[in-house]
Design a protein around this nucleic acid. Structure first.
Length: 220
DNA sequence: TTCCTGCGTA
DNA sequence: TACGCGGGAA
């Protein structure tokens, strides 16, 4: 934990600037990142939970084609769209979400209202706000926890993401300007570089990363 | 075998 | 706070 407190401010600035810079040339243009349809944006978030983004692409494209709004989706009883993605209960959950949005007549923007929507938790609410409403918010998923753990130097487990101190750290790191670019870079960087089997040689954070420093390994 | 933009429930 | 969910890809 010494590694975390040492030069903390410097490390935060370094992390922000380098991730945003890295993102400029490594941004993944997934179709749900380009859409202006907020319904589709939420659908994508549901499809993406614990699911490989590459696998979601064809399923999402097909969905967008068939259901431009909650109304069309609600018109069909059972679409089996999650057949190839697993976690099949998400269809029923998505149906509840569609019903709720249809009844409301709009998709809310404030955090509390979003969190009341079925299937929308801390992560999806934050991602939706930052990516599709351009409202600065803090995203924390399993990959983000892994990166922060390695970079700042602390052990993580499946419950770490819900700890208050982790949320405070993530909030401190997430910039107010360019929050969207930073958050996208965070997702792309943890998927391609700081992944479970990390690509240390390609990591632009390694000079200040506790994982590399603590392992005192010249090969990094 | 592990992992994938988590969530609701108990 | 802990647990179940799931097919598909690496």
């Amino acid at each position: 934990m010494e590694c975390l407190e040492a030069n903390k401010e410097k490390k935060i600035v370094f992390l922000r600037n380098n991730l945003i810079e890295w993102g400029k040339t490594n941004y993944a243009a997934f179709p749900w990142r380009e859409t202006n349809n907020k319904w589709h944006a939420l659908v994508a978030e549901i499809m993406l939970q614990r699911t490989n983004a590459e696998q979601v692409v064809p399923v999402y494209e097909s969905f967008v084609e068939s259901y431009p709004s909650p109304k069309e989706f609600l018109f069909e009883r059972n679409t089996n769209i999650f057949q190839s993605l697993g976690l099949h209960w998400r269809e029923a959950q998505l149906r509840s979400l569609a019903r709720e949005i249809y009844n409301l007549g709009y998709i809310p923007e404030d955090k509390n209202s979003l969190l009341k929507l079925p299937g929308v938790g801390d992560y999806i609410a934050a991602a939706f706000r930052s990516f599709h409403l351009n409202i600065r918010d803090v995203i924390i998923d399993s990959n983000v926890v892994r990166l922060y753990g390695r970079y700042f130097g602390f052990e993580t487990d499946p419950e770490t993401r819900r700890k208050k101190w982790l949320k405070e750290l993530a909030a401190e790191v997430t910039p107010y300007i360019n929050h969207k670019e930073f958050n996208y870079a965070l997702l792309d960087f943890t998927r391609n570089i700081c992944k479970p089997q990390p690509q240390h040689k390609e990591c632009l954070l390694r000079n200040l990363c506790c994982f590399a420093i603590d392992n005192n390994d010249s090969k990094y």
